[in-house]
Structures are given as structure tokens and as C-alpha cells.
Simulated scan of single mutants.
Amino acid sequence: MKLTRDQAIELHGFNNLTKSLSFNMYDICFTKTKEEREAYLKYIDEQYSAERLQKILKDVADIIGAHVLNVAYQDFEPAGASVTMLVSEGPVTHDVPKESFEESPGPLPESLVMQLDKSHITVHTYPEFHPDEGISTFRADVDVSTCGEISPLKALHYLIRSFETDVMAIDYRVRGFTRDKSGHKLFIDHEINSIQNYIPEDVGEQFDMIDVNVYQENIFHTKCKLREFDLNNYLFGYTKDKLTPDEHIEITRRLKIEMDEIFYGTNIV
């Protein structure tokens, strides 16, 4: 059963459905030498430091109307960072708008329109590199878990625009149940067909996307891989005109294999 403002279903108690969004992004780069790899890792550490990640998560909290209770953060050596936020329901100054229940992309930080019940938001980063193929990969995992009516999917639009990404894996799941006044269990309180409907059209056009959904379990999964490939976007510190034709072909092959392996979740021989 779907809950909407039009139906105005009265619940037995607090809406304690747990909605969890997991956003995983991958940035891929060709780093031929040790010096290039170290420079790339330094760039990633600066671009996605714990300080900047805090800013991103605070913007997420603003978008979903959460009040930040506590923040724990850490930069790691030699690379990587983590931020965890405990948040609670923010001050209720406006009614939750009807559009917040619709399957559509959420707002950016300047257009705060929603509120949130008890929750947490986390991000962890994982820079790594292949031992001999010249490939460096940066991964960031963001988890947004909420209770109540609002779906964390409304923060997806902003998260996608906050990270430079070649491949994305997005998971959404609704757990638990709440009850109406008669005691009837409600296992989800909004309609959802696909996570893709929460991705803005101009962003979706840039990616090939695959859905793997288990509707009866309220589990939704979408994988995205960047469509257009420009080798210049994957070289660090120089451009493809510095490569020989053979290098151009070989580096392109390696990068595309890396992207496909991440996208399909399997090694390609």
C-alpha cells in the first residue's frame, strides 16, 4: 500500500520504515609512472579530503532537512578519508510538499524542501592502483539511511553532481514496516519503479544504465557507466597527443577493460 498526502492514512504510531541509499562511484585514471600515480593520489586526497566530504554530507543533510547531531571524520595515510554524521529530524517549518513523494530527481542544496527523521549519513573513500597495468582507481561509498516518510533518493541528484564519476553503482532498499490505525502492516510508503527516475535527464543521457530490481523485496539496484570516452580525461598531467598510436590504442584498451570490469562486476580475460 502506498501512503500519500491525498490518502492521508493515519498511522498507529511513528513511521519507522528504514530507507537506505548506497551510492558508490568510481573515478579511473591511467598513471604510467610512480610519480604520476603519487600525483594522482595527492590530487584525490585534496579533492576529496575529509573537510570537503564533510561539506558534501552537510549539504545532503540540508537537502533532506536533517539536523546534524555529531560528526566524526578522519583523513588517512597514505590516502583516503571517512566522515560519519549522526542526524535527527530537523525543525519542522513547512509541510512536506506533495512533490517529495513523487518519483523524480531531488533538489540541489539551494532549494531545501524536505524534513527527515532519525538517520545517519556516511562516506568512505578508497584510492587504489593496479600493480603493473598503470591503472589507478578512486572509489567513494556514500550511505544515507533515513526513517520516516522521506526517501534518501532525493539526495541522489546532488551526490552525482558532487563527484567526478566514470562508473556508479546505486542501491536503494526499504526495510521493516509501519502500521496504519487498524494494525495493517505497510512495508513501503511510496511508489518506485526504478532508481533511474531519480537521476536528472541530462545526467542520465551521459550513462549506459542497467537495473536489477527485486520489487517484492523492495530492493532496487542501478549500475551506470559513462558513454562517451575521451582519453584526455583519463591521462594525468599530459594529453593524448603526447602518445604514440600504439600507446593510444593500448591505454584505451586497458581503461575500457577496467570500466567494464567494475560495471559488470567480473574480471575480463
Rank of each mutant, 00 (worst) to 15 (best):
A8L: 13
I9R: 03
E10F: 04
G13A: 15
N15Q: 08
L21E: 02
S22A: 12
M25F: 06
D27W: 09
C29W: 00
F30W: 05
K42W: 03
E46P: 00
S49H: 03
A50D: 15
E51D: 14
R52A: 08
R52G: 07
L57A: 08
K58I: 08
V60K: 14
V60F: 11
D62G: 12
H67I: 02
V68M: 01
P78A: 01
A79V: 08
A81D: 13
A81C: 06
S88G: 03
E89V: 05
P91I: 15
P91T: 14
H94Q: 10
E103Y: 04
L108V: 06
M114D: 12
D117R: 09
H120Y: 15
T122H: 03
Y126E: 14
E133F: 14
E133C: 06
I135N: 05
T137M: 05
A140K: 05
V144R: 02
P152R: 13
L153A: 06
L156E: 04
Y158F: 15
Y158W: 10
R161L: 15
S162L: 12
S162R: 06
F163C: 01
E164K: 12
V167T: 03
R173C: 07
V174P: 03
R175E: 10
F177G: 07
D180E: 07
S182W: 10
H184W: 09
H184G: 07
K185G: 04
E191R: 05
P200H: 05
E205K: 13
E205L: 11
E205C: 10
N218H: 14
I219H: 14
I219L: 10
F220P: 04
K225T: 04
L235R: 01
F236S: 05
T239P: 02
D246V: 15
R254Y: 07
D260Y: 07
D260Q: 09
D260E: 11
D260C: 05
E261Q: 08
